[in-house]
Design a protein around this nucleic acid. Structure first.
Length: 149
DNA sequence: GCCAACGTTGGC
DNA sequence: GCCAACGTTGGC
């Protein structure tokens, strides 16, 4: 079963928001590489929920894909922060998935901790200059991160 | 708020 | 198709 890592700004959607909601739409991805990974996701795939652009960046919990990729409605909504004037109902290049809450870690696994793990050197998240917001996580990487809890 | 690194845009 | 300019990401 493939596993993933997805970045969210906790001001927009945190792992605790997801815990309260149960499920949420993951929309607003506007990068083709990240979108393509989302299109490869299947129901029940697990993902690490990463908090970015916040005081303590790091992995805050786990979620599960509960609806595979579909056309991202936010691209068509003029009031949305993620509105894309070039998208239309007929031709919407962007995808969203729905995710369900699985677990919130007692403590965030910080980016600094992740960077210090030799098992994670290949993970785009820890590589200099990488801004990819959705990425695959190998079975070995997944296990290494779980062991850091 | 700064700024390095990256992706996208658009003129040519 | 090149590449400079620009906007965005995201850690610090």
């Amino acid at each position: 079963m493939p596993t993933w890592l997805m970045k969210s700004e906790p001001d927009e959607l945190s792992i605790h928001d997801l815990q309260r909601l149960g499920e949420a739409r993951w929309d607003g991805v506007r990068n083709y590489q990240a979108r393509n990974f989302m299109r490869g996701m299947q129901v029940d795939d697990l993902l690490f929920f990463y908090h970015s652009s916040c005081p303590e960046p790091g992995i805050a919990g786990i979620a599960r894909i509960c609806r595979p990729a579909y056309a991202d409605p936010s691209a068509l909504d003029p009031h949305s922060h993620y509105f894309d004037a070039k998208a239309s109902a007929e031709k919407n290049p962007w995808s969203a998935v729905d995710v369900a809450f699985v677990d919130a870690f007692k403590q965030v696994i910080t980016l600094a901790q992740l960077k210090a793990q030799s098992a994670l050197l290949e993970l785009p998240l820890v590589q200099k200059g990488s801004r990819l917001s959705v990425m695959p996580v190998s079975a070995e990487q997944w296990a290494a991160i779980l062991a850091m809890r």
